[in-house]
Structure formats: C-alpha cells, structure tokens
Design a binder for these strands. Structure first.
Length: 294
DNA sequence: AAGAACTCCTGTTGGC
DNA sequence: TGCCAACAGGAGTTCT
C-alpha cells in the first residue's frame, strides 16, 4: 500500500522517536510476517541504539550501533503507531472515526529506552522485517537488483531512455518494476503517466529516444515522476483506508489525485474534456484519460 | 530471459 | 439484511 511518499512520511515520523534512542526490549508476537523473522530478532535488537533511519525504495532502514540494519517493509497494510514517552497516545485513526487497530494485527512492539513504544500492525502481513549486516546490505537479495531512486539526480531522461529501450512491456508495468525505478507504486505510476500525457498502454520501448537523445515524452515522464512524488511527500503522502503518518495524521495527497480512483469523473487535465477510465494491466488497476494520454 | 500469471493474507465494498 | 465476488497502495515465485 504505501509507496515511496508514504514510506518517506513514515520515516520522518519515526525518525525523532528512534534515532539516538535504544531498544529496551522488543515484543515479537508471531514468528513471521510475509517471511519468518530473522533468528533471535527481539534479542538481537535489545540494547541496540539506532544511529540513523534511512529509506531505500519502499524500505525503512534503521542503522544500529552494532553494524546491523533493521530492514522494514510495510507491504500493503503495514502501519506504525507511536506511544510517546510522556504517556500521550497517538493512535492511528485518532483524527478519524475509524476503529483503532485490532490487537490481533499488532505484531511487533518496540519498547524504547526513553519509554516510548513503537507499534507495528499489519492486517495482511505482506510486510516484513529483517536484520542485515550494514556491510553486505547492497549485495543482499532484497537490495541487489533494486532500481534507481526516482528523486535522485541520477534519475534523468537520458537514464530512463536508455533503460526503456527495447522493452516490450507496457510503460505502466515498467514503472511498477522495482528493478527499474524503485519506489513507484500503483497510485503514483498512474498519476505520473497522466501528468506526462502518456497512455499506460504504450509499450515502454516506444517512448525513449531518437538518435540518442531522449524524446519529449521521456523528458516529461521523468519530470512528472519527480513532481508527483515530491508533491506527495510535501502533502504527507496519500491516505486511503489503511495509511496514516506515524503520528496518526492523515496524508493529504489523495485530494490531489487527477486519475487514481477517479473512474467516470471528468479529466482534470488542463483543457481536457475526457473522462477517466479504469483498466486492468497485469492484474492491477490503472486509471487514465484516453483523451489526453497518448 | 523477459513478461505475465499466480500467490501470500485479511478486510471492505458493491451488487443482487 | 445476507451472501459473495471483486478489489485493495506489494512483490517473490513460478509459469510460458
């Protein structure tokens, strides 16, 4: 569920609670999420200090003082909540009429040295956690094939044109491929294609280059991806059903969706009179405007 | 080898 | 109201 902007928002919320703090104890309430927890997970975390909390693609990386990295992925329904040390409970859904998280879905509780508790709940359990040595992180199976960070300076039209060349899959499917661009998901792929006025059906290989130079569509796509992700982070991510920022405040970017979830509504593209359609590609919904996306 | 289908799991929603 | 199929922000594994 959470894509790059949501994970980044969670990172910003967790950072002041985790960084510089120690794990006093960790409750691990089941042996696995999507994958088994690593051996002696809770024990290995106990007493460790968090030196930094980073993000890579949709992964959160808590760098520990013993050279290990606590790797966390939220899957589709993973969410964190924080009980502050001063006793204040910041429950997800606090600003909503939604029920609180069912206790059965709360799988991990990190008790911090300063008295704060960081809770991880995940109804579908598509999320996962692992402990990996910092020195081998980039060679680890989870990270080895991971693609470029779309907000990095290295992500340029030249780079994208080069990587899309010869691809026979749809551009929508290509944008979801984490080995290519790491962090885009189903919402922002649709939104970026709409901003760039590119049909999700277009074969990725037909977008890129002419005589070695990126075509306008490639330039527009890179610009759109960066813009939509940047704006979403600024808005604190998108809140649909499950996602809340770590403080429990909802994201606001859902109000800026131009196509995602907007089936049947008029296209909000400038000067476009089209209607937003929902189609299915590779088993996933794509929203787009057939009138302005070519 | 690339691309697509299948799979994991639980909860919500919409149609009849 | 009840039931049931469809769908949900991900991505590793298994097929073709």
């Amino acid at each position: 569920m959470p894509e790059l902007p949501e994970v980044e928002t969670v990172r910003l919320g967790l950072e002041p609670v985790l960084v510089g703090n120690r794990f006093a104890s960790v409750e691990q309430r089941r042996k696995d999420l999507r994958f088994p927890f690593p051996l002696n997970f809770a024990k290995r975390l106990s007493g460790r200090k968090v030196e930094a909390l980073d993000r890579r693609a949709k992964y959160l990386l808590a760098r520990l003082d013993d050279g290990e990295v606590l790797v966390m992925h939220l899957g589709m329904t993973g969410r964190f909540s924080i009980d502050r040390a001063n006793g204040e409970k910041l429950e997800p859904g606090r600003f909503y009429d939604e029920a609180t998280i069912a206790p059965a879905h709360e799988h991990v509780v990190f008790h911090m040295g300063d008295g704060a508790a960081v809770r991880y709940a995940d109804a579908r359990r598509f999320g996962y956690m692992d402990l990996i040595r910092q020195s081998g992180l980039n060679e680890h199976a989870l990270f080895k094939g991971l693609g470029i960070e779309p907000l990095s300076e290295e992500f340029t039209p030249e780079w994208l044109a080069n990587r899309l060349k010869g691809k026979a899959t749809s551009i929508k499917a290509a944008l979801l491929d984490q080995r290519l661009i790491a962090g885009l998901g189903n919402i922002y792929a649709s939104e970026a294609l709409h901003r760039a006025k590119i049909s999700p059906y277009r074969l990725a290989g037909t977008i890129p280059t002419k005589s070695g130079k990126p075509m306008p569509k490639t330039i527009a796509l890179v610009k759109s991806i960066k813009a939509v992700l940047g704006a979403a982070i600024k808005a604190g991510g998108s809140s649909l059903r499950d996602y809340r920022s770590a403080e429990g405040r909802p994201g606001r970017f859902q109000y800026s969706f131009k196509v995602y979830g907007q089936e049947g509504k008029p296209c909000r593209g400038k000067g476009c009179s089209g209607t937003v359609c929902r189609i299915v590609q590779n088993g996933r919904s794509t929203f787009y405007c057939p009138n302005c996306q070519k």
